[in-house]
């Protein structure tokens, strides 16, 4: 399973999202710190989920960090999150 697929699976399981986008942006960061051949280092993630309702911005981000887990978080160089307002 690719890292992208693993991210998608974990997020789907944790948040049952109504909308989910996991985009590998690594190529846009070619030559920057953290770039590696093959990509899967820089991600942009969009999630809309009822689980987030009533949660602060920080709480929502923390929930995503937790769902991905320490190992996966450590493998990703950059993670940009759009979790709604």
């Amino acid at each position: 399973m690719s890292r992208t697929q693993e991210i998608e699976e974990r997020l789907r399981a944790a948040f049952q999202p109504s909308e989910l986008l996991v985009r590998d942006d690594s190529e846009r960061h070619r030559g920057h710190a953290g770039y590696q051949e093959g990509g899967e280092s820089h991600y942009h993630v969009v999630i809309r989920s009822a689980v987030f309702e009533g949660k602060s911005r920080i709480a929502k981000h923390r929930a995503v960090h937790e769902a991905l887990g320490k190992t996966l978080m450590a493998q990703i160089h950059a993670l940009s999150l759009d979790l709604g307002t």
Binding site: R57, I58, H61, S80, L81, D82, T85
Partner: peptide, 8 residues
């Protein structure tokens, strides 16, 4: 917060 939160 971090970059995403400050931007928002």
């Amino acid at each position: 917060g971090g970059c995403d939160i400050i931007t928002e």
